[in-house]
């Protein structure tokens, strides 16, 4: 009997979890439960990154998506839900565009999977003379410097914009 590869098992486990929780987002009536299911989706995707040797990407996924974006989403949903009074439920509207979009997406996936689509190698990490974190850091400061600086400027703009929008209300009252 062939030896069981635990990485493959873990991959299918987490991939299954991601798909099931993504379906639960659609099926769940309660929008709060959908948001919490999204946490599970992101966590399983992070786990898949980690078992395919992309540890840094996986941890960043947790940090950025769950620690940042999802918390913001939860705040939004929870505050509107309680202020509004009524329960927020998921509904089915605009069925025709949704069906067209779904079919289109399915076609895109189908045509991609026609060619051989290998799973990533789960084996031991390829030997580098520097660790992954060091490689990422060096690349940021050399090959990807323009992208890094542009992102920094973009984030600074967003920060100033947010401070301006939040601050101007208090200025008017004075």
């Amino acid at each position: 009997m062939e030896q069981i590869n635990f990485n493959i098992l873990a991959f299918y486990g987490f991939a299954g979890l991601a798909v099931i929780s993504a379906l639960m987002i659609l099926m769940s009536k309660n929008i709060i439960h959908s948001v919490f299911m999204l946490v599970l989706v992101f966590l399983s995707v992070a786990a898949i990154y980690i078992i395919t040797n992309a540890e840094f990407v996986g941890v960043t996924q947790i940090m950025v998506y769950i620690g940042g974006i999802l918390i913001l989403m939860m705040f939004g949903v929870m505050l509107t839900n309680r202020i509004d009074g009524g329960k927020m439920l998921t509904e089915h509207r605009r069925i025709i565009p949704a069906v067209l979009l779904g079919l289109g997406l399915a076609f895109v996936f189908y045509s991609t999977l026609q060619t051989k689509f290998p799973l990533a190698e789960f084996g031991p990490q390829s030997e580098l003379d520097k660790s992954v974190t060091e490689t990422i850091g060096i690349n940021f400061m050399t090959h990807q410097l323009v992208a890094l600086e542009l992102t920094a400027v973009l984030l600074l703009m967003a920060l100033i914009g947010a401070a301006f929008l939040a601050g101007s209300k208090f200025e008017d009252k004075k």
């Binding site: 919490f36 946490v39 540890e55 840094f56 941890v59 960043t60 947790i62 940090m63 769950i66 620690g67 999802l70 918390i71 939860m74 974190t133």
Partner: peptide, 15 residues
């Protein structure tokens, strides 16, 4: 990733 991982998972207790 050591401490980076630690900081990321600790932020999950907010959820």
């Amino acid at each position: 990733t050591g401490i980076y991982f630690l900081l990321a998972v600790i932020s999950l207790d907010v959820i």
